[in-house]
Design a protein around this nucleic acid. Sequence first.
DNA 1: TGTAATGTAAAACGAACGTTTTACATTGTC
DNA 2: GACAATGTAAAACGTTCGTTTTACATTACA
Lengths: 174, 174
Amino acid sequence: MDMTAKLTAAAERLFDRHGYMATGMDQLTAAAGMSSRTLYKHAGNKAQLMARVLTERDRRFMARLEVQSVDALFAALEDWVRAEGTRGCLFLRSRAETGGDTPEIAEAVAMHKAAFYQRIGEVVATDLGREDPVLAEQVLVLLEGATHAAVYRGADAVSAARAAAAILIERART
Amino acid sequence: MDMTAKLTAAAERLFDRHGYMATGMDQLTAAAGMSSRTLYKHAGNKAQLMARVLTERDRRFMARLEVQSVDALFAALEDWVRAEGTRGCLFLRSRAETGGDTPEIAEAVAMHKAAFYQRIGEVVATDLGREDPVLAEQVLVLLEGATHAAVYRGADAVSAARAAAAILIERART
DNA sequence: TGTAATGTAAAACGAACGTTTTACATTGTC
DNA sequence: GACAATGTAAAACGTTCGTTTTACATTACA
C-alpha cells in the first residue's frame, strides 16, 4: 500500500467520523503515519485531499451498484451500511460543511450525485423493461432517505425502504 | 425583538448556510449586531448557541407538522422547502459535523428526531384509522429522503416522495 | 561514487479560533 | 442622585489552524 492510498484511507476514516472541518492536518498526519511534508506533497491541500477521498469513495460505492434490479440496489445499500456504518451521506455532508463554497469538493459531490442519479435510472429501466423517470426519482428518494434515516432509526429504515420500493415497482409493472 | 431572539435567528441563518464549524463567533456578533460580551452573556458558548438554534428550529418545524393526513405532511415539507431552502437536515448535519461528541448538540438532535418519528406515527394512525409502524417508517424514510434528495434534485424530489407516499397509503387502506 | 528522489522530524509562519477582560456609556428605578 | 443592570468597543488570552521551511536520513539508479 503506497503512501497516497494510505493517506486517502486514513483521511476518509477521519473525515467520515469527525467531519471535514473538525479534522486537523496533524490528526491526518498521525493517522496516515507520515510527516506533514509528505502529506502536502501527495495531497496538495486539505480541500484537494477531501476531493480525492470523495472520488475514491464514489468509485467504491458505485461499484456496489452494478446490479440489475431495484431490489438489489437496496441489498447493496444494506451491505454498505453494514460494512461502513450509518453516518449519512459523506458527499452531502462535506458539501454542506463547506457551504458549497469549496470548488474541488462541490465538483466531486456534483459528479457523484449525477452518476448516482443516472445509475438508478438505468437500473429502473433494466428492471422494468422501460424507462420510468418518476419511479427512478422515487427510488432515489428512498435510497437517500434510507441512508439518512438509518443514522437514528438503524437498519430498519433500510428494510422499510426496500419494501416500499418493491411495492412501487410491482405497481409500475402491471 | 430582544437580543436573544435576534442572536438565535442570525445564528440559525449562518450555521445553516455555512455550517457550524465554519461559522466564527465574530461572524455571529456581526450578523447579530452585538458585542461578543453580550453574545456570551446570552448564549453561554458556541455549542449551547447551536443547541438553542436547534431547539428553536424544532419548535418551528414541528408546528408545521400538526396535520391530519400523510399527504399534508408532504405539503408541509414542500412549504418548508420553499420558505427555508434545500440544504438538508440541519439536525443531522450539525450532529455529523461534531461527530456526535458535543452533548448539547447530540441531545437536541435526539430530541427532535424522536419527536419527528412520533409525530409521523400519529399522523399515519390518524390517516389510516389504525397504527401501522412499517408504513410510518416508510413515510419517515420518504420525508428524510425528500429533504436530502431535494438538495441536488430540487423540488421534484419532494413531489415524487409525496406521490410514492400516496400509493403506499392507498395500498395500506384497502 | 555521486546525485536525484523521497522520506522524517520539528520548528516556524501568520492568521484565525473561542473566550475573557478591561474600560466606558446608557438606561430605568428606588 | 445613587445604583444596579445592560449594553458597546476593543484589546488580550492562550490555543490551534493550514501550510511552509529548514535540516537531515535513506534509498535507487546512472
